[in-house]
Amino acid sequence: MRSLGKLIQIEARLFLRDPMTFIVGLLLPTVVLIGLGAVPALRERSEDIGGQRFIDYFAPSTIVMAVGVIGLTNLPVVLATYREQGVLRRMRATPVAPAQLLLAQLVVNIVASLASALLVIASGRIVYGVPLPQHPLGFLIAFLLGITAVFALGMLVAAVAPTARAATGLSTILFMAAMFFGGVYLPRFMLPDAVANIGAFVPPGVQSLLDAWTGTAPAAIPLVAMAATAIAAGAVAARVFKWE
């Protein structure tokens, strides 16, 4: 336990010391939301999106971004680099299993995603009056299942990528897909219905987040899909993960 605590502490410091993870992972989603909100038209109610303000409608997409940057790009690339450089192998030569280093990475990255999401919610609320999630329990469930599915996919990339470069390539593809379906590149009301519908099932599940944010209980089937993705990807990752 003492070594796990130390590992979490050191991995957290390393996370914060890397300007890329710190700026892109923790701050960028909030910067994007604040930046878009600075455009007056985006703070007005629009018939295109059922009378909502764009800024309110877009907030869940910035959460998708926060979770995606950290879980789909940072996590797998760090782990693949650790494998490639022999950091995991070095751990195997100690009494502490390298699985603890994986666990420490998961804890640090999950906490960072939570922090990034909270920063989005808080700054949206304070700066532009974006309402807090109206269905808090639903939001919490949707967020936790979504983040679990994303992190399981990130672990799967870390497990199958033979090198850090391969991990970077694979995770970029997954990240871009998640951002596209999550309405980060184009707002979802501008996407064809079929694409927008698929987006409900692509982790972390932007539709569930949006529903819960605006006060409706998130639909069950997309939530089940998130749980299934998490279990399937996590199980495969655990099975094929190599330490060296």
């Binding site: 050191i10 390393l14 010391r17 890397d18 450089q85 022999g86 950091v87 192998r89 070095r90 030569a93």
Partner: peptide, 10 residues
């Protein structure tokens, strides 16, 4: 070990 590194920022 031969050729095992630590994270660059530690």
């Amino acid at each position: 070990l031969q050729e095992s590194r630590l994270p660059d920022r530690i």
